[in-house]
Each structure stands twice: as C-alpha cells, then as structure tokens.
C-alpha cells in the first residue's frame, strides 16, 4: 500500500507563544504524539508543512525549527485566515495535525565552505531562523564560512525570536545585525531599512551566498544592493509563497510557470526565478 500524503501526523501543541507585541504572530511548539513518527519526519531548513486544525482545515507554513533540535517542531504563524486564527486560539495540550515535510530546502550542500549572508524581514524570518540555528549547531558550524544575519522589522516588538537574537548577539561565530525602521524608545540597535543596512554591513560576494526572505518591497530594494555587491543570480537564494492546498504538486494552484512552489520550491535561486513568469 502506498503512503497516503494527505493524512496528517498527530502532534500536541505544547506551547502557544505570543511572539510579537501586536499579538498577530504566535509561535507554536509541537511534540510528536507517537514517538515513532519523528523518525519518519526527516526535514531540512527551508521546508514547510501543512498544519491542520480538525474541523477548520489546513494551511502551509514554513518550519521554523531546525532538524538539529529534536523532539519538536516550531512554526511562527501570522493570524490571517480561518486556520491561522483557529491555531492562535488553541489551548496548549490540544492536538494539531501536521502533514509534511513538504517542498525542497535551502541548498545546504552548495553552502558548504561558503560565507553566508542571511537577510530577513518581519515574520518571514521563520525558515531563516531554521537555517541559522542549523548552521550554528556545533556539529555543523565548521562546514560553513562566515555567517552574517541581517534582520529587520518595523518596530523592536515585531522582531521574532527576541531571546534567541540576544543569545546570537553574544556569539562570535555569527555577525547579527538587527534593524528597525524608525527610532524607538529602549532600542539601542541600528535604525534603517534592510536594503541600506545590507549595503553597509554585508560582506562581499566572494565565495558567498545570499539568502533572502521578506516582504516584496524589502526584496525589491535589497536585490539591487546584492547585485552591486557582486552576488550573481545563481548565488541569491529566495523562498516563495503562493496559495496552496495539496502541497504535493497536484491541486494546480501554486504554480509559477511550469514549476509548483509546493513540489519544486519553495526555495529557488534568483537565476531560476528570472526564467519564470512573475506570478507570485
């Protein structure tokens, strides 16, 4: 009997954490109800999964935890529609369905031995957090070169994973630059938009990859900066979102040209996207 890709794994919501001060992004920590399911859920940073609320439906979200953090999965979800609202209202201890892992992942093999510039904006930082945590794991850190993370949000309260960012600040094997749009009380960090900060702090493109996820306007204005720094389109990595249902390349809605974001993506190089229509 073939495996049924539509059936969700049962997981338990162990933590429903309000991540941002506007309360619109929650981070969910899920644990496997059946220990054996974990062995079957082999994932890599950049992949996503469908979260299912029984009675409401399912929706796709990037996996914010890293495979180097066993025992649980993490998702940071903005309250937008029926499923995300139901998730936000869920009490800890409730069962959630998870279907995945789905999609491709960041090209870790290509990253090996290279410097990395990770650029994120707002609540698009989820799979970038997974990637950063993966690289910072002692077992993996030596495989990669210099790591620079540029992370911007409109206000300090909208940055995700604040405790973890503070930990990363202290380390000397990662250059973390957080920035907010306008000066704010209590903020001693950098102020400015991501494109300008990128221009200022990103190291050169030699032997380096850039990974960028964020709102379209941030991407639009950061792209010329990356090009000016000398990053060729083959070494700029992006991750797409489109409306999805099946997550397995059958239901027909998330395609960009002849590629399905769910099955062939969500991670694409800038060079690949240059070959595709602009339907995302």
């Amino acid at each position: 009997m073939m495996r049924n890709p539509y059936l969700p794994l049962p997981m338990k919501l162990v933590k429903n954490f309000t991540e941002t001060d506007d309360k619109l992004v929650h981070t969910f920590t899920l644990e496997y109800l059946n220990a054996a399911d974990e062995a079957g859920f082999k994932y890599s940073p950049g992949q996503f999964a469908e979260l299912c609320v029984f009675g409401k439906g399912e929706a796709p979200f990037g996996i914010a935890s890293s495979p180097t953090e066993p025992g649980h999965l993490k998702f940071s979800v903005a309250k937008v529609g029926v499923v995300s609202t139901a998730l936000h209202l869920m009490e800890e201890g409730t069962m959630v369905g998870v279907r995945g892992p789905l999609g491709n992942s960041f090209p870790l093999e290509d990253f090996k031995g290279k410097n990395l510039v990770i650029i994120g904006g707002g609540f698009a930082f989820t799979t970038l957090r997974a990637l950063t945590a993966y690289i910072l794991n002692p077992a993996n850190r030596g495989d990669f070169g210099k790591l620079t993370v540029i992370y911007g949000a409109r206000t300090p309260g909208l940055l995700l994973y604040k405790d973890e960012l503070a930990e990363w600040e202290k380390r000397d094997d990662i250059d973390l630059v957080c920035t907010i749009d306008r000066p704010a009380e209590g903020w001693n960090g950098r102020v400015g938009f991501v494109p300008a900060v990128t221009k200022e702090v990103a190291p050169g493109a030699d032997n380096a990859y850039a990974v960028i996820c964020g709102p379209p306007v941030m991407i639009k204005f950061t792209m010329p900066e990356l090009e000016a720094l000398g990053f060729p389109p083959e070494r700029i990595i992006m991750s797409l979102e489109n409306r999805m249902k099946c997550g397995i390349g059958m239901c027909g809605r998330c395609n960009v040209g002849n590629k399905y974001v769910c099955k062939d993506g969500p991670v694409f190089t800038r060079a690949e996207l240059n070959q595709l229509p602009n339907e995302y």
């Binding site: 439906g57 399912e58 249902k245 239901c251």
Partner: peptide, 22 residues
Amino acid sequence: CHCFDIVDDAVDANGCRVRNWD
C-alpha cells in the same frame, strides 16, 4: 483538468476532509 480544493466538512472537530474540483 485536475485542479482541486481541499476543505473540512465538520461540526466542531468531528467530520471529514473533502476534496472538490476547483
């Protein structure tokens, strides 16, 4: 044509997941 939608048809948390042509 093979496009489809997936929806839940349920009362509270009891029901079924259904796919429909889309």
